[in-house]
Nucleic acid binder design. Structure first.
Lengths: 229, 229
DNA sequence: AATAATTTTTAGACTAATCTAAAACTTATT
DNA sequence: AATAAGTTTTAGATTAGTCTAAAAATTATT
């Protein structure tokens, strides 16, 4: 008589592990490039030694490949997990802005928590409820159920051409400070922008909005994404 | 010259602490009664020794009063925290059922996680979005922003009178098994029920639904709440 | 009131995630 | 190629939450 044991090993992924994977995904150009220890430590506000420990654990679980002193790169599996977290994060951001009256700059912190709730039904139904949005409130593309998403051909305001009409489609810097600056100057998703003048001296840019004209610093111009109309 | 230091001590409450407080609230009749160690251990699926450890910590933080070998009772502060978690849990349940097509028995597990997201704006806006619901999908009252809620005069089917018309308003047992049993027999919130006969032998109850008649066991009759029409 | 049964607490150990400080390795500079 | 500077890893410690096993206290039973 044979006894057959079917053992399910359910690999639970912790919140901390998810945050490491997400950080490595963003730092490594959608998981394509190697990422080094210090960079991870910096974005996660932790110490390099902690990163080394965690990275070994994630390598054991085959979410990434780790070469001592070289850095880490996500595996297929790791990328899938990251994309799924990004999908959840961005869908929740849409929900918060469109249904719960959150502003551009308020969504990020709450979405950081909501993105870790684990329920396929929850996220697929939310997707349907929001009518399958393609972009989040910052203009970033939302991966679909299978992890597919568009990479849009965005251009920073700093690289925009004088005289062309552009539409604002997103930001690089998502800090509260920056988003509030944009809000207070009536720059948001969809705002039409034309470049009037680029000052070579300090790389500031003079732009025309709907009704007003204003000058923005190089720092702002670098962090604002546009698409030609 | 005087130097004034204003020190904010932000007492972060952990997920685990919240779950203990919630369990003690439910076990202790809305926080009014003492709760003993073993009872807490059982509902939280942990060991009595772990409960003792945690309970000491919660006493230090003044969420509850703890008397060695006697048990614990929530403080005002502890009750406030519990009520707030209950509010969040029940609002999310309404959201899941009304907006995301969840059924009675699917909501609980996801709501267990959503209830721990910390954002006043999130929960108040969700409340408004749902148009300030008074009851969750199981018929339990939802505390308002200030923690106030109705205690409804519900009666178990087992205590219902023969010949009277009742409306189903909730359940005691929220296990998946029970909720699925109700679903498959077309008993839900708002279903009209009339008691036809009570069998003294085994305490089973014969009831009339909209179109059909059926007999339910004592166990079912004990766990189904009604309100006279 | 003494003993038995049960409940609760203590003591000591374990895991996950972190830290500091020192050692090992890599890269840049002379 | 040798040294300096910077990065990464190791070793050992810490904290939150949990556990087992034994001790202490309470409650129930004779």
């Amino acid at each position: 008589m044979y006894i057959c044991y079917l053992v399910y090993i359910i690999v639970m992924i912790t919140l901390t592990e998810e945050n490491y994977i997400k950080a490595i995904y963003h730092l490594g150009n959608y998981g394509k490039d190697m990422v080094n220890t210090n960079a991870i430590a910096e974005v996660l506000n932790t110490k390099a030694s902690s990163v080394t420990d965690m990275v070994k654990k994630l390598a054991d679980k085959e979410y990434l490949n780790y070469k001592k002193y070289q850095g880490v790169k996500l595996t297929k599996n790791g990328i899938n997990i990251a994309v799924n977290i990004v999908r959840k994060h961005r869908l929740w951001e849409v929900f918060l802005v469109e249904k719960l009256n959150f502003t551009w700059d308020e969504v990020h912190e709450v979405a950081e928590h909501l993105e870790h709730i684990k329920s396929d039904k929850l996220i697929d139904e939310l997707d349907a409820f929001l009518e399958f949005p393609m972009y989040d409130p910052h203009g970033d593309p939302i991966p679909d159920k299978n992890g597919k998403f568009n990479k849009i051909d965005k251009i920073a305001l700093l690289q925009a051409e004088i005289g062309t009409q552009y539409k604002c489609i997103g930001v690089e810097d998502t800090s509260t400070n920056f988003l509030q600056y944009l809000d207070s100057n009536s720059i948001g998703l969809g705002t039409t922008i034309e470049v009037l003048h680029k000052e070579p001296f300090d790389n500031s840019v003079k732009i025309k909005l709907n009704t007003t004209e204003m000058v923005v610093s190089q720092n702002v111009a670098k962090n604002l994404y546009l698409k030609a109309l």
